[in-house]
Amino acid sequence: MSLLGMFAFVFSCKDEDKLTVADTQDITEEAVTDSYYQDMDDMAGVSVSTPSDGQYSGGRTETTYTITVDDDRLDCAGVVITVTPAAGSTADVPKGVLTVDFGTTACADNKGNVRTGKLIFTYNGRRFQPGSTIVTTTDNYTINGVKLEGVRTLTNVSGSTSEAPKFNAVLSNGKATFIADGTVAERESNITWQWVRAANPLEDYLLIDQSSTASGKTRGGRTYAVSLSKALKYKRFCGIAVEGIKKYLIDGSKEVTIDYGDGNCDKSVVITVNGVTRSLTVN
């Protein structure tokens, strides 16, 4: 449910009918924070899919294994990834704890994102098995100077298939601390998304279910609630959604709606603030 891009503009004459600088900051902050938690989900899935059957079940003598994960976010020098199978873990139904320790010296990926601290993934079941779960917690984990906390529960939902896997991600007690100034944003979310695969992987897309919601408090102390009037569709390499309608309710009274269009990867959106509408292109 991310809106990746900065809206550097205001419009309309009345404050209640324009997108102010504060609104822009809050919407961008929400999108960035959401994308950081989604990044945790993706790393959880990639990491938990990596161990061999023997490592999942614990083998005959060892109970903790060190592994490597083929992902540029996780292959910095000094990053240590360990797998500790739980009692009763099997290759068919693996369960245990996988810990990614980025250390304290910072690990930068090929997009320039810098991570420190630990991500702790408690898994039960294989990634693409309906009913499987990964519960993510953090230990002093930061990305780009933002410390993330909370409990993130990722569940492969009923009806999911390997061709179109579907997941529900619930964030409880989410907290993002911006280390540079010590300000804090709070967040709760319940997001269901489906990865729709195509014959050509470049044509894969993600679909965010219309039932998905998020809420919280910004660093500036304003409350927000996010809902969808239409499911969001994300194509590879487009940066922002190409279809769908996302609605923000700020401080319980100011409504900002973002319409992402009809599926074209043109970065054009239509913004409506309390009934006043403008079209624009997101850079």
Score class of each variant (00 low, 15 high):
Gly125Asp: 00
Gly125Thr: 03
Gly125Asn: 07
Phe128Lys: 11
Phe128Ala: 10
Gln129Val: 12
Gly131Tyr: 01
Gly131Cys: 04
Thr133Gln: 05
Thr133Pro: 04
Val135Trp: 04
Thr136Met: 01
Thr137Lys: 08
Thr138Tyr: 07
Asp139Gly: 00
Asp139Pro: 01
Asn140Ser: 15
Asn140Asp: 13
Tyr141Lys: 01
Tyr141Trp: 04
Tyr141Ile: 00
Thr142Arg: 03
Thr142Asp: 05
Ile143Tyr: 03
Ile143Lys: 12
Asn144Leu: 03
Asn144Met: 01
Asn144Lys: 04
Asn144Ile: 00
Gly145Lys: 02
Gly145Met: 00
Val146Gln: 10
Val146Leu: 02
Lys147Thr: 11
Leu148Pro: 07
Leu154Gly: 08
Ser158His: 04
Gly159Asp: 09
Gly159Met: 07
Thr161Cys: 05
Ser162Ile: 14
Glu163Phe: 15
Ala164Leu: 11
Pro165Tyr: 05
Pro165Thr: 01
Lys166Val: 05
Phe167Trp: 07
Ala169Glu: 12
Ala169Pro: 08
Leu171Ala: 00
Leu171Phe: 00
Leu171Ser: 03
Ser172Arg: 15
Ser172Leu: 15
Asn173Gln: 11
Asn173Trp: 05
Asn173Glu: 11
Thr177Arg: 04
Thr177Ser: 09
Phe178Met: 06
Ile179Pro: 06
Ile179Asn: 14
Asp181Tyr: 02
Gly182His: 01
Gly182Lys: 03
Thr183Trp: 08
Val184Asn: 07
Ala185Gln: 11
Ala185Gly: 11
Glu188Phe: 15
Glu188Ala: 15
Ser189Gly: 09
Ser189Arg: 13
Ser189Glu: 13
Thr192Trp: 02
Trp193Leu: 15
Trp195Ser: 10
Val196Leu: 12
Arg197Ala: 14
Ala198Asn: 11
Ala198Ile: 09
Ala198Gly: 13
Ala199Cys: 10
Asn200Gly: 12
Asn200Glu: 14
Pro201Leu: 15
Asp204Ala: 09
